[in-house]
Design a protein around this nucleic acid. Sequence first.
RNA 1: GCCGACGUAGCUCAGUGGUAGAGCACAGCUUUCGUAAAGCUGGGGUCGUGGGUUCAAAUCCCACCGUCGGCUCCA
Length: 646
Amino acid sequence: MPRITLPDGSSREIQTGATVADVADMIGPRLARSAIGGKIDGEVVDLGSPLTRDCQIKILTPSVDDADSLHLLRHSCAHIMAEAICSLFPETKLVYGPPVENGFYYDVDLDRPLTPEDFAAIEARMAEIIKADRPFVRYEMDRDEGMRKLQAEGNRYKIDNAERAEGKLSFYVTGERSDSAFEDLCRGPHVPSTGRIGAFKVMQVSGAYYRGDQKEKQLQRIYGTAWPTKKDLEAHLFRLEEARKRDHRVLGKQLGIFSIHEEIGPGLIHWHPRGGMIRHLVENFWKDEHLKRGYDIVFTPHIASERIYRRSGHLEKYGDMMYSPMDIDGLNYYLKPMNCPGHYMIYLSDIRSYRDLPIRMCELGTVYRYEPSGTLHGMLRVRGFTQDDAHTFCTPEQLGQELDMLLELMDLMMRTFGYQYKAYLATRPEKYLGTLQEWERATNELQMAMERRGLAFEVDEGGGVFYAPKIDIKLIDSMGREWQGPTIQVDLQAAKRFEITYVGADNAPHETIIIHRTVLGSMERFIGGLIEHYGGAFPMWLAPVQILLASVSEKSADYAREVLARLKAAGLRTRLDVSHEKIGPKKHAARQEKIPYILVVGEKEAAEGTVNVNDRSGKSLGNQAVDAFIAHCRKLVAERALEPGA
RNA sequence: GCCGACGUAGCUCAGUGGUAGAGCACAGCUUUCGUAAAGCUGGGGUCGUGGGUUCAAAUCCCACCGUCGGCUCCA
């Protein structure tokens, strides 16, 4: 008799052949009613699965806090959607329908394009299937028999799936097994019956290449979402709406940060005054911190002749991403796609001694790269962008301390902007240049630097670039999303290709170590990300307008002007509103613009020499003397505090 | 680049073949006002661009451009 252990640590013996459902029943009738599956030794299984050996078991019930139960629910819902689509469009060939973050999709091969207008019919059919509450019935076949069955059905995708599967093939029928019943090759598991799907919605349809291969047929991918209850579904739709409000494209327009114009071209960013101010502040901070750490600021041209890009290998490797050349005096010139060659030329313009190293060059360098039209996305994916680029040229002995400094700089940047982050060590990919020893040495240096810092990291096996292993930092924003952040690469090829050397103490040339890194990525992507991270409510030091100064009526306008002069003299970016409006609408407008502080001045304030302070959350902070408020603001700016919050 | 949807006033959007609309924003006037959108009046659009169908096109068809959601790719 198998002995089972429950999550609370208790264990008991059960009849051989008892199922997960039987266990749920033993524990209690309420659990039995709500159970949708089980987890045996970490593997999610059907409620009807027999228990044949000693095991750890957990009964799964629908819950938004349990990823396993959500997957079970969503994967089952994908089947129901597939059945609905097949019944509406019998020529549909099913491909693959997994659960994903917040929902599921099903890829189908169907020549008639599905449109959002079809969703209502699909949802209606799904609702019928759910209402019928038909059981998901699993049956298995030997490989050969199963393959013969699939061959007879002639769906090449399912044959493909089956060929990849191990062992027996399993099928799921919804309802009684018969010629007319809906069934699908599937590994499972599923909820016990269709009626167990709480709430669902068909969300969108898009194209997706079979197996992600551009040369393969493009299928239709229909996305849906499913939740334990209607309330959960509504909460999810609400969250989507909230995320939409934080979208940097929405806020970028609303707050006057940037725009993109068809007349000028897609993927090309125009920084408006507010955006320009934010960028200016970020860049100043960036430059200050680099100068403090011994960097030299350099500038390199926006175009360069083909000679450099042949030598660098860019034309060969990145030619597809570079724009067509322009002819200047019979020689082809290209818009620069990267800053590195310019920095190498600066290094090579002189003989470098080991005494000169390390040389650290940084540049906010604008580059242009061809990105396919379908991939452009606001400020986050553009065709012209400014990288915060830097190269450190050093000796092998200096590499460790340089990496230490870079990790420290990276950490400062992330903390200042309020990001949590995760580190990854990306190791040698399949296609690589250089020797194994070089790779091992460089990878070790990166790993040791993270260990010295006590920085926890995961290894991204084979995730390095062909010329370098790297440290990748993924930053986590205020909504819990991960973004590609800083990256540090120890370049193993550039020194060879460009003959970048220094003269050692032995008076002989040695290959220079080159560290290639970025701490913000690009100004466009970084600030686009910041907009979403802060939901448009920039902290005091970054807010393009820090203070709105509003008079209660014209009677207080003169006092307001007086306060304005003092705020401006203190270097605070302040806007005055002495319009003939009531204080309510003035405050409302300032909050719409997410200005950190709103100062109300009326006759009372004028009499006592104070300002009435409100933050953008709507909270009143009472009256303060003008100097005290100025001191408070200057402190926030000097500390680059993340306050006041949204 | 591929699949699908969308493109109407500065913004958000309504308008399914018959003289272009609303709210917000903007301007003027009234109100001089105490903390989450005052009232009235007014200006503003060759309905993304170009073809076509029709007596008549924002509306139907075609092409192109752009945007959005995905796929692929990426700072």
